[in-house]
Each structure stands twice: as structure tokens, then as C-alpha cells.
Design a protein around this nucleic acid. Structure first.
Length: 196
DNA sequence: ATATCGATTATCT
DNA sequence: GATAATCGATATG
């Protein structure tokens, strides 16, 4: 199994991150999916062809980025929940309103860039009117997903996060070894905490 | 360290 | 009018 990279060309810099955490949403029979109640103006992309971007705005503050995965007419999708920053880190930090210092707290701050659905959208500049519906399989698009030949270690599955319905299904997939997965369910080893 | 809460808007009932 | 696939700040041990 190979993991992929989300890339985005913005102006001069290219922004890229490796996908380290996703959640699956089934089209039908999934009370947590936006598509559960049928097609609407908001989720229309999910019912289109696979490999396209579904972007939506949530909680009045944040965007979330999904990839439609099922053939036309079926609304299954994958929510991209966390990335490992790969390229364009300074611009991502600007987008997030953070400053990445050159040395020490760097690793810690990298986690703040893209470890979460809302964060990674802000870091990559993904917004609803602008990016919704883009073809992620075409390099002509300024937002696409490609294969970077990365060989992940163990893939762990857990319950999905932040939802209020059908939350118990183990449809969240994370690269177990990655420190860049979103914070909620990180499994800190005993005594692994930081001091100060 | 963990827990609780407010922000803020598109979408649906 | 209620709700939400979140984040960041504040409060508390």
C-alpha cells in the first residue's frame, strides 16, 4: 500500500503534505455522512465521479477536505484528517498565522500546521467556492493527489472523531508511527510527555 | 496534565 | 431556529 501526497501550487511556492490520517464516510447506510439524506446542493460533488474534491464549511470557522471515491451516483468519500508537511512549509505557516522557528520547537510546530481537518485546509488554502469540485487526479489542476512511493508502517484503525452519529464504526485510518496524526486519539506511551 | 467552552456561518428542518 | 466530519483559549488538578 502506498501513501500519497496532496500538492498545491499557490503563486510561486508548491505546498505538499503526505496523508497520514483519513476517515471513511459511506454514501448510504452511514448516518454520519453528509450524503446520508440524499443529494443536496452542498454535497453534490460526492454524487459525481470519483477523485474530485468535496470541500465544506463547518462550525462557522473551518473547512474540511474530502475526496469522492465512489462511481457516479454513489456518494462514498474519504475525509483527509491530517498531513505530514513536506514542502512549502513557510507558506503553510503563513497561511496558519504561525511562525516556524528554524530550530528547536520546529517539530512541535509542524504538527500544528496540518494535524487536523480544519488546520490542513487552512495551511493549504483550501476553501469552499474555490476548490470544491476540483479534479484531484489531474496535474493540470492546482490541487491534486499523487503517489509519492512512501511505504507506511503499520496502519491502525480507530473510531471516527468528532461525529455524533454512528461514531462507533472503526473507519478512521492512521499511520500508527506518524507523529503528525491529529491529536485527539494519540496514544502517548507512559512517560512520553514533555517537561518544561 | 486534562476538561470544558465559545466562536461563527452554511445548511437543513 | 437548531445543528455541525473543529480549533484554540481558558479553567482546573
Amino acid at each position: 500500500m502506498l501513501v500519497r501526497v496532496v500538492k498545491r501550487r499557490g503563486g510561486e511556492a508548491m505546498l505538499a503534505g503526505r496523508i497520514v490520517e483519513v476517515e471513511v464516510y459511506l454514501g448510504a447506510d452511514d448516518a454520519a455522512a453528509h450524503s446520508a439524506a440524499g443529494k443536496t446542493a452542498r454535497n453534490a460533488v460526492l454524487f459525481g465521479p470519483p477523485g474530485h474534491a468535496y470541500v465544506y464549511f463547518i462550525y462557522g470557522n473551518h473547512f474540511c477536505f474530502n475526496v469522492s471515491c465512489m462511481p457516479e451516483g454513489d456518494a462514498g468519500c474519504v475525509l483527509i484528517r491530517a498531513l505530514e508537511p513536506v514542502a512549502g512549509i513557510e507558506e503553510m505557516a503563513r497561511n496558519r498565522g504561525l511562525v516556524v522557528a528554524a530550530s528547536e520547537g520546529r517539530a512541535a510546530k509542524l504538527r500544528l500546521l496540518t494535524s487536523g481537518p480544519g488546520r490542513l485546509c487552512q495551511a493549504l488554502g483550501i476553501t469552499r467556492p474555490h476548490d470544491n469540485g476540483k479534479d484531484l487526479t489531474s496535474r493540470q489542476s492546482d490541487l491534486w493527489i499523487g503517489d509519492d512511493q512512501f511505504k507506511p508502517g503499520e496502519i491502525a484503525t480507530t473510531a471516527r472523531i468528532g461525529i455524533t452519529r454512528a461514531a462507533e464504526q472503526p473507519l478512521r485510518y492512521v499511520i500508527a508511527q506518524s507523529p503528525f496524526v491529529s491529536g485527539n486519539l494519540r496514544i502517548p506511551k507512559a512517560g512520553a510527555g514533555r517537561h518544561r
